[in-house]
Amino acid sequence: MWDKFKGDPLMGFIFVIFGLIFLVPGIGYGLSSPGGLPGPGAGFFPTITSALTVFFGLWIIYDGLKKGSVDYFGQDPEQRSNFKIIAVVCAAFIAFLLIWVYINFFLGIAMLSLFYNFIFKRTWKFNLIFTVVLTGMLYVVFERLLYIQFAL
């Protein structure tokens, strides 16, 4: 049963929820202008677009249940470890953002580069050279030449 609701029906459901989140307050903003002014109100356009998002979301659910869904995350055996890598990459990215917020951007980017190259099984020599070049380039171009302040 659950299998039927994976893929397109689930994605359609997300569109329906997204549309509803905007539709309900949208109606509240007013479909016509306040005080008898001519023309539509602030809620007119978001109501139309969010209602249409809900409509097409429902259509996707219907199509998915009737015709079957695209296999979103289908892989052959050789690709199976890729999902784990993506999860690790995302976790490392969150860690990088925390390092940036609490310590320093360039330290974070250097650690991110070292870690990514490590999980992608690059040699230590390449990893170190690449990290130094990347971090150095970002520092020189953005911080020194373009005066972008990465300190939060």
Binding site: G12, F15, F18, G19, F22, G26, F45, P46, T49, S50, L52, T53, F56, G57, W59, I60, D63
Partner: peptide, 16 residues
Amino acid sequence: VVKGMAVGFAGLTLST
């Protein structure tokens, strides 16, 4: 087209 429509209107909704 249906997926394109859903995505397009979601983008329009977000623009508000």
